[in-house]
């Protein structure tokens, strides 16, 4: 049984190839970011840097904007994860009750699912955020998406799997639902909560569009929005409306080694939490997607 046959070697080779293909864009970007500008632009770089140098990374350090945006993203993640996770935890518990115990449960549930399927579009949402005075604050990046219906459902499904007897005995002891949530559910659901916290973190770290719409000044711009702005390609029409100096500046900014270096550095937080993510997400995902 344990002896490997030819077909096993073929499978091994194919899987290694697939794994490698998943890394190609990242390896290529690392190589480009460590190469000489001209060599990179001329297409001499594959997986190994040409004329190795770290000037692109030095430029990032010198240019304050990248790390400023990095800081904004960190703040956003911290606020977004704590608020988002807290809301999901608090909401998932009552929702895991049956309508017999919690009569309004299904009304809430329908409302939540409805918001997941339907939205009013960009402009009305913008007007709400604007009228609340959130434009150009970190809250405009955190609050509109604070409630993740999807995460709440994942957590709710996990809660449903917790034996009711645990709760019942506590209820008899006179505990209220809040105490039960804190004493019984949260400790049991730690792994699931960690999973959705990590998912929320990745979401807030990667999201760029809200920053584009709600943020007005550079010092409030999150990292992904900043990077997205760098890779804008110029159309002929745009060029026609720009002054020559603007075009030159614009093209100088869109620089392949520099941009690759920025992409690599901005991946670091995701890479750091990735091992934790991997440990948790398999169970979390399977639970949320197919309930037995």
């Amino acid at each position: 049984m344990n002896k490997l046959r030819l077909s096993d070697y073929i499978i091994l080779a194919v899987l290694l190839l697939i794994g490698f293909i998943c890394l190609v864009p990242i390896l290529n970007a690392i190589a480009i970011s460590l190469s000489d500008k001209t060599a990179a632009a001329m297409g001499e770089v594959v997986f190994l840097p040409k004329k190795f140098n770290t000037s692109a990374y030095e430029e990032i350090v010198k240019e304050g904007r990248f790390f400023h945006a990095f800081g904004v993203s960190i703040r956003r993640v911290l606020l977004g994860v704590s608020i988002g996770t807290a809301l999901s935890v608090v909401m998932a518990y009552p929702l895991s009750k049956s309508p017999r115990v919690f009569r309004q449960r299904n009304a809430y549930m329908w409302l939540m699912v409805f918001t997941m399927l339907f939205n009013g579009g960009l402009i009305p949402t913008y007007l709400v955020v604007k009228n609340l005075g959130l434009i150009n604050t970190i809250w405009s990046l955190v609050l509109p998406g604070a409630v993740s219906v999807y995460n709440t459902i994942i957590l709710m499904n996990f809660n449903k799997g917790i034996p009711p007897s645990l709760e019942e005995s506590a209820l008899i002891d006179g505990a209220n639902p809040l105490q039960i949530l804190v004493r019984i559910y949260i400790p049991l659901a730690k792994a699931s909560i960690a999973t959705i916290a990590l998912f929320t973190m990745v979401y807030h770290w990667n999201e760029f569009f809200m920053g584009k719409i709600y943020i007005n000044t550079l010092d409030q711009q999150p990292l992904q929005t900043y990077i997205q702005g760098l890779s804008v390609t110029l159309t002929t029409q745009q060029m026609a409306s720009m002054t020559p100096e603007e075009i030159i500046r614009k093209l100088a900014v869109s620089n392949v080694t520099f941009n690759s270096a920025k992409a690599i550095v901005s991946m670091i937080p995701v890479i750091i939490v990735y091992p934790f993510l991997q440990r948790f997400f398999v169970t979390g995902l399977v639970m949320g997607a197919v309930k037995e």
Binding site: I123, I213, N216, V232, Q238, M242, E246
Partner: peptide, 20 residues
């Protein structure tokens, strides 16, 4: 200065200001 954005995004921001 109420806002400043990349020149390619300027009209989009202005558009939102017109609506609001």
């Amino acid at each position: 200065t109420v806002w400043e954005v990349d020149s390619t995004e300027f009209n989009n921001k202005l558009s939102l200001d017109i609506v609001a």
